[in-house]
Design a protein around this nucleic acid. Structure first.
Lengths: 143, 143
DNA sequence: GCATATTGGTTGTATTTGTAACCAACAAGG
DNA sequence: CCTTGTTGGTTACAAATACAACCAATATGC
């Protein structure tokens, strides 16, 4: 007999993946449809929008995303004029990224959408559940 | 002023992705190192192991994974002799997938590893937190 | 100052994935 | 039967990702 009583739905890595996929797929469609943005691009936008100008590797470190992914997302956002780069004069390897007016507008708009989406998702839980859920996820995410 | 008080870490889709990535990355390395299996392959193995023989589209439906992904995972598992196919005689489009002895052994082994990993992850939470977390995730995942 | 190592960032190539087109087996309607 | 439509599954091609090699600027050791 093999381990017949093993249930995938009790397995945390599986549960997390499944939930994450389900939840972020819905939101991905929103901003993809509206701005043609990929997940990483939206995340770069969010970082710059909420924390102000920073360099690519700052974002990579804070979002724990590989720098090549960031690099490509930044190019895409630059091409669409959502952000601009300026080389840091004291260290000319680094470039400070900042949102253009268009980028800020997109960010504001996406924040509104994001908040509404978040409320929508959260609504199916009690306040206590929400608190526990967010706390546990933050811990797991290493925040 | 742009929406400066928006914090990514409060945004559920982001939290979920981050947590999922962090948690399943660790486990992925275990079974990738041991069996050279990809996530989808391990999930196919898990389905067949815990629910017995079934067809590719059964798995696709139950795991909510696209059938092409399943198809490729099944071929990979077949090549490595973890499973075998037999055409269903009453409907020759469908093929019943079942684990070979090797597949069963791999499944048993992975179940043990998975349980240990799960315990490890869960240990940082209280019993109540665990219950809430699993319940919420299951709901979000649509289980 | 000069060789060496490190860091910020990009590019090239091999995998992986998603989307759509596809084939074969079956089902339904006439 | 013979069209037409559906379903299970695979394949082909495009997009996305990971990984390693790379370039330029700076830091470090001597």
């Amino acid at each position: 007999m093999t381990e017949a009583d093993f249930e995938l739905r009790d397995f945390l890595p599986f549960l997390l993946n499944q939930a994450a996929e389900e939840v972020s797929l819905g939101f991905a469609q929103v901003y993809k449809a509206r701005y043609g943005m990929l997940r990483t691009e939206w995340r770069v936008l969010a970082h710059l929008g909420s924390r102000g100008p920073m360099t690519a590797s700052d974002i990579a470190a804070s979002a724990k995303v590989h720098k090549t992914k960031i690099s490509r997302a930044v190019s895409a956002l630059e091409t669409r004029r959502f952000l601009s780069r300026t080389t840091v004069e004291t260290d000319r390897r680094r470039e400070l990224l900042r949102l253009t007016d268009m980028g800020k507008a997109a960010f504001d708009d996406l924040v509104a959408t994001a908040r509404a989406y978040d409320r929508d998702v959260a609504r199916q839980f009690t306040t206590e559940e929400q608190a526990v859920l967010r706390r546990c996820l933050a811990r797991l995410a290493g925040l």
